[in-house]
């Protein structure tokens, strides 16, 4: 009984705190807090959201599906997707800020950053469009679209940094779908697993050039 009451008080306090936090961020979105946060994102993800090669490849956000951005930020926060930097980043973003940022990035359309080995993209195109039936790899285009732009929670791949896509596909189950909660990234796990390193590189090279 006492536990329940404490729980209720705790819950109410949290709700109140969340409401205050939401209020404050609503305010700061309005007062130019948005511009500052946007610049913060672009410091790492490129000044036009085209991605950036730091010590780690920082993915292109330009043209990305807002629903995917929102999902991933939630996954970082809930530790379903392992990334210490992005978990901290996500902690300081309110839902309204996330929506505003995601809408902004969706509208950007810079040229792909480039830098992928060109020789691979022929094989990459074949895998992307036809899949590899003999290894149970479906055509990427079936979900991500022939143009690689994705839709709703299926991410855009077009123009994505080569090293980023290689890194994600080769370490899929180590970073994504952690914990026990339902996570849509599970869809990709068998596909990523069934691709060889060379096939991963080919697909990554191909999508990095898509516009």
């Amino acid at each position: 009984m006492r536990g329940i009451r404490l729980g209720l008080i705790g819950g109410a306090t949290m709700l109140a705190a969340a409401a205050v936090a939401a209020d404050r961020t609503q305010e700061s979105v309005a007062r130019g807090g948005f511009e500052a946060k946007l610049q913060y994102c672009k410091t790492c993800h490129g000044l036009s959201g085209q991605g950036y090669y730091g010590y780690f490849p920082m993915p292109r956000l330009a043209g990305q599906q807002p629903q995917y951005i929102e999902n991933q930020l939630r996954a970082f926060l809930e530790r379903r997707r392992t990334n210490p930097i992005m978990a901290n980043v996500a902690h300081a973003l309110s839902p309204s800020m996330i929506s505003a940022l995601a809408a902004h990035f969706q509208a950007l359309d810079p040229k792909p950053l480039g830098g992928a080995p060109r020789a691979l993209s022929g094989l990459g195109k074949r895998i992307y469009e036809d899949g590899l039936p003999e290894s149970n790899v479906p055509a990427c285009a079936a979900c991500h679209g022939l143009d690689g732009r994705g839709h709703s929670e299926i991410p855009r791949l077009a123009g994505q940094l080569y090293a980023y896509t290689v890194g994600q596909l080769s370490g899929w189950s180590k970073a994504r779908g952690q914990g026990t909660a339902v996570d849509t990234s599970a869809v990709m796990a068998p596909t990523a697993h069934n691709l060889t390193r060379a096939q991963v590189e080919a697909v990554a090279a191909y999508v990095s050039e898509l516009r």
Binding site: Y40, C44, Y52, G54, Y55, I85, V89, A92
Partner: peptide, 25 residues
């Protein structure tokens, strides 16, 4: 970690875990 609330990015992302840099960083 940077200071996300103050929009300060983590140096680690570009300069690496041991501040060793990479390429022209």
């Amino acid at each position: 970690e940077g200071i996300p609330e103050a929009n300060i990015v983590a140096c680690y992302a570009c300069h690496g875990p041991n501040a060793e840099g990479v390429r022209d960083i």
